[in-house]
Design a protein around this nucleic acid. Structure first.
Lengths: 138, 138, 138, 138
DNA sequence: GTGGTCTAGACCACC
DNA sequence: GTGGTCTAGACCACC
């Protein structure tokens, strides 16, 4: 299963579902056109309430990450610039600045953070390659 | 004023105060030994309740960002590695991975994010220099 | 009821709640997975304000004694070494030294304190056994 | 100097003075008949307010740890059972039980605590011997 | 239902 | 003056 959820975390469960789907898409585990489990199926699989899954799917649809086709099911959407993307760019920059603040309080200088981030990017890409291969094999 | 707060945001007001103080320290606007406004003063200045400021100050003290001297006031602490820093490092890496996910859904590749991050770091350092100079001039 | 609170004492009420829960866990009265009363229920039972209970629960969660599952309730956590435990060990030794100082002013020599402590430990274990049996009998 | 005080700690300064004097007596650094600095002298030496020292001395006198002889000065009292000593014995036992609770949450069993306490006692006595010698030499 | 946040206002110990 | 605690009561997100 490409999705797990932990009700003990402070992050709301519905948000964990959103984050999980987005991460799977970003990692290439889920590709445009892939079918998602139905709300009820996913709720059972994750042992959570179906309302929680429904809320997550609604928000993912608003963000154009998934498409709900009535009577057919739920699918990963083609990559698209999400609505309100100017604001989202600003938020991304804000997140990066927050990263620098948090790092400062771990006694890291900006250069250290940059190096750490490069490391994370490299690891990310290595994992991505793994998934590409996996898909090629099918 | 180096701190502003917006009660309309979904992030709690007390958390905004915490983030604001940490950011000011990271930026060099506040330096070790500097005195913070009293709980009541800051509450009036931000137009929020004193309990909200008190909660923020208490959490900042637990994180060793500030030191409270009872009956005297509140001061920026010497830089210190916070408790539980191993966990915090893991969280920092997780934040970086989340950044990559969010960026993917804005049609940015990891290289783009890295470039954007470098840009943010450069801007950060330019601002930092400004503060250094400002202090030197006094 | 395994918890009582006395607002007349100089130790804050929320701290008494924290100490009481920790003691119940240490004594085996509360076991991992056990559900705690809700914030409001406990507040009514102890005749204190719900904010006071909430503050205690939040601190207990930070110390990993309990786990809060939002919208569901509060539960005793699996035993875990708390963050910052090196510091806590030092505090434990300091408490022991303070014990020796206080005992000196009651005209007790260190050997007397040690004997008294052994006695307290024995009584503690007898009580613990009682709880074990009680659970077994059910 | 046998006494130090740290206003940054959460323990009130006047309480630190009380604890410090009691510890010095228990360790043999101060002996019955020894003269304490005047309130003003000690306040200057510790860089604290003289009211704070006065408050500490008053409580030490109430506990029969020191004796104030008007016009002459302040002296360490002969060892004496303090007033209300029955209550103090109960408190000592309560402190020991609290030690066991705190230790439980550091994953220590009562036997571990007992061993640790024995270790603390041994170290304490070694330090005491050191002081005895120092006094003999005078 | 659950816990989390916030305000308004009181009272307290400490310095 | 300083921060810390507590109550009463409101509103909110989450499940």
């Amino acid at each position: 299963m490409w999705l797990h959820v932990n009700p003990k975390l402070s992050v709301p469960v519905y948000q964990q579902v959103i984050d999980g789907v987005k991460a799977a898409v970003a990692k290439g585990v889920l590709k445009p056109g892939d079918r998602l489990p139905s709300v009820r199926e996913l709720a059972v699989a994750l042992a959570i309430n179906h309302n929680t899954v429904a809320k997550a799917y609604q928000e993912l649809e608003r963000d154009r990450v998934i498409e709900v086709i009535r009577g057919r099911g739920t699918f990963i959407a083609e990559p698209a610039v999400p609505p309100d993307s100017e604001r989202r760019f600003a938020e991304l920059r804000a997140s990066m600045r927050k990263l620098l603040v948090d790092a400062h309080h771990l006694n890291l200088r900006p250069e250290d953070v940059l190096a750490m981030f490069q490391d994370v990017v490299h690891q990310w890409k290595r994992e991505e390659d793994g998934h590409e291969d996996g898909h090629r094999d099918r």
